[in-house]
């Protein structure tokens, strides 16, 4: 028997992973949730058939979306995470002893339940006393926050489905309002490669540029996401991601990582020419 998970990356491109067996399948109020085991990528989670994470490459995504803003901000204490029900971002955040509070806002409680049960690699720090989980729409949660957080990490799904509100201008504006005067927002910024993804990436960038004085983009290589070439948005009220960054200071924290390091931090903001052009087009 051959059982394959297949995700359509474009109408003409498919990405498949051979499945060893399926561990979970269920529908929440918002989406379909599936967990599989595979030989090549280990356990993996999909929502509505879209790849969210695999055990083999999740460290790249979670380290890059977390450590970049945490290393730029001089004293991040109060952190808001939106989405991220798999727990990967929380896992990375809890490694910072300076962090006092982590609010996680996930719209879908079932995602957290399923991840706690099947994905202990990422959903391993929900019991940290600094972590507070709220099950509601991030768009709603953040509307009520003003001058509250040092760092906001938007670990969203895609700009369609339950997470689409997290790609809107009103949401980015609410994030700006919810941050302290030197706050930083980082978001999952889609991919520049395939046409449709690139258009979504540009839309998102345009709206962030309109909402924050500093808005940069950095990249990482994530094998199981469409094209493998993935971007993150770095939006900030005060700190520049590389000019205001001290690698040696972060190194002194002694946080052991598999992907992120201080040289790569600076390097990840150096983008290919075609990506720079796509971004410049909407700035």
């Amino acid at each position: 028997m051959e059982l394959w998970f297949t995700e359509r990356h474009t109408p003409n491109v498919k990405f498949s992973i051979k499945v060893d067996h399926q561990l979970y399948s269920g529908n929440s109020e918002f989406q379909r949730i599936d967990v599989f085991d595979s030989k090549e990528f280990g356990r993996f989670l999909t929502l509505d058939g879209y790849m969210m994470l695999t055990e083999k490459d999740e460290f790249i995504y979670h380290e890059m979306i977390t450590h970049v803003p945490m290393a730029v901000h001089p004293d991040p204490k109060n952190i808001l995470v939106i989405g991220a029900g798999d727990g990967g971002v929380v896992r990375e955040l809890t490694r910072y002893s300076s962090v006092e509070n982590i609010d996680l806002v996930e719209i879908d409680e079932l995602v957290v339940e399923v991840c706690k049960q099947y994905l202990p690699t990422t959903a391993c720090r929900f019991d940290d006393p600094r972590v507070h989980v709220y099950y509601e729409d991030g768009v709603k949660f953040i509307r009520r926050c003003t001058d509250k957080y040092d760092v906001i990490i938007v670990d969203s799904t895609d700009p369609f489905g339950p997470g689409e509100g997290l790609f809107t201008k009103e949401f980015y504006g609410s994030c700006f309002n919810a941050l302290h005067e030197d706050g930083i927002m980082v978001n999952q910024h889609e991919s520049p490669f395939y046409t449709e993804d690139a258009a979504a990436m540009q839309r998102s960038h345009k709206r962030i540029v309109q909402s924050f004085p500093i808005s940069k983009v950095y990249q990482a290589h994530i094998p199981t996401y469409p094209s493998g070439h993935w971007l993150f948005g770095f939006a900030s009220k005060k700190y520049h991601p590389t000019n205001d960054y001290s690698g040696s200071k972060w190194n002194m924290l002694g946080i052991k990582t598999k992907y992120y390091n201080s040289r790569l931090h600076v390097g990840s903001f150096a983008l290919p020419n075609y990506v720079e052009e796509l971004l410049k087009d909407v700035e």
Partner: peptide, 18 residues
């Protein structure tokens, strides 16, 4: 949808702020 209503409310909050 509920999420559209959330957008409307947030946009109105943003209009007030901006």
């Amino acid at each position: 949808r509920k999420r559209d209503i959330e957008r409307l409310i947030s946009a109105m909050a943003e209009i007030k702020r901006r």
